[in-house]
């Protein structure tokens, strides 16, 4: 049941990503181009998603537990530290270079285009590198 739920939520999420225009690298770069010919439409993706999630979470997190699990698994780290800062800067840099953030990059594999596979493979190596760095230097 847990797996079926995850699959269904993934489908809904993937539908949202492609319908919204987030899997269109031209649109994403146009949205990030605030000093040029700015395409503001993608601000409505985050706006409406945050609106729904903020209202939904308010109700859901008041419940004693999720329906299919014993507890809510919420992030516990509350410190704004250097890994968060440097990680976010690097993520924004890569996002602005190509126009893919992780979700749309993975969802775009459905288009069966070489660049999506190359991007996701490189992303996996980036995650491997960061994991290695954290294990050897940041512990």
């Amino acid at each position: 049941m847990i797996k079926l739920t995850a699959l269904a939520c993934g489908i809904l999420f993937g539908l949202g990503l492609s319908v919204s225009g987030m899997t269109n690298t031209h649109k994403v770069l146009g949205f990030l181009d605030v000093f040029g010919d700015w395409d503001a439409s993608l601000a409505f993706v985050m706006g409406s998603a945050v609106l729904v999630t903020a209202i939904g979470y308010r109700y859901v997190l008041r419940q004693p537990a999720p329906r299919l699990s014993t507890e809510f698994h919420l992030p516990t780290n509350a410190v704004i530290d250097r890994p968060l800062l440097y990680g976010a800067i690097l993520f924004g840099l890569g996002w602005g270079m190509y126009g893919y953030c992780p979700g749309p990059a993975v969802a775009s594999l459905a288009y069966l285009r070489l660049d999506s596979f190359v991007f996701v493979a490189a992303m996996i190596f980036g995650m491997l590198s960061s994991t290695w760095l954290k294990q050897h230097f940041l512990t």
Binding site: A88, C101, V118, A121, A122, M123, G126, M127
Partner: peptide, 15 residues
């Protein structure tokens, strides 16, 4: 795509 993908993976994992 390779450079951007690597940086996105590294950054999101670190952050």
């Amino acid at each position: 795509a390779i450079v951007a993908g690597w940086v996105v993976g590294f950054g999101t994992n670190l952050g």
